[in-house]
């Protein structure tokens, strides 16, 4: 299997996402998320080098500054403030969920094979499988964790997966759209962060599984 530099970065990012599942420590989770996002930013920059698309450099820079740097810092600041260091974990033990994720990582290669390829658009199936794998890792992270901060991390991993998919399966999403998406994401994380503070203040915990007053 011959991998190009962006593909290698993206696959490594997907693996890092799998590793994120293995630890219940928020600091470890956030650190691994930052590494994952840096890898994705790198892949974007390499992609820019390959296709000669200047916009990709801008996007890589934006991802690096905001998603890989500001967001994890913000979230770890929250977890410091709330003195939440460890997730409780839900029905799936952390090691098992990591191994499950790895198996899904392999299955995503099979899934990605189903994706039609247009050589004109420079599709790569390892890239697509990295995207699918990231998406699934994020979903499992959201399902297997109970702390609000971990939910946000899971959401961000899903978003990374979708971005990866876009990066490898399309060529050149309009810059405006990309920036809008990134902005929306940042605002969503900020809003979620503020809500987490409020949840801590009102409930004295940030365990989402215990928020079930409202139901039919």
């Amino acid at each position: 299997m011959n991998l190009s530099a962006p593909e290698l970065c993206l696959l490594m990012a997907a693996l890092v996402a799998c590793l994120t599942l293995g630890s219940l420590h928020l600091s470890v989770n956030l650190g691994l998320f930052a590494i994952e996002t840096v890898l994705i930013a790198l892949a974007t920059a390499f992609m820019g080098g390959i296709t000669g698309d200047r916009e990709l450099y801008v996007i890589a820079l934006l991802i690096f500054c905001f998603k890989a740097f500001t967001v994890p810092l913000f979230l770890s600041w929250i977890s410091d403030k709330l003195m939440a260091q460890r997730d409780i974990g839900s029905f799936l033990p952390a090691p098992l969920s990591m191994h499950l994720c790895l198996i899904l990582f392999v299955l995503s290669f099979a899934l990605a094979k189903e994706i039609p390829v247009s050589h004109a658009a420079g599709h790569s199936w390892p890239g697509a499988s990295a995207g699918i794998s990231l998406l699934l890792s994020g979903l499992i992270l959201m399902l297997a964790r109970r702390l609000a901060i971990s939910q946000v991390v899971g959401f961000l991993v899903i978003e990374n997966g979708i971005y990866t998919f876009a990066l490898t399966q399309t060529r050149g999403m309009p810059l405006m759209v990309e920036m809008g998406i990134l902005l929306d994401l940042l605002v969503a994380v900020m809003v979620a962060g503020l809500l987490i503070f409020k949840i801590q203040k009102n409930f004295e915990h940030i365990d989402i599984a215990q928020l079930k007053d409202l139901r039919d």
Binding site: Q151, A192, L195, I199, I208, L211, L214
Partner: peptide, 9 residues
């Protein structure tokens, strides 16, 4: 708060 969190996520 609970409704907002669910809605947002």
């Amino acid at each position: 708060l609970e409704a907002t969190w669910k809605y947002l996520i």
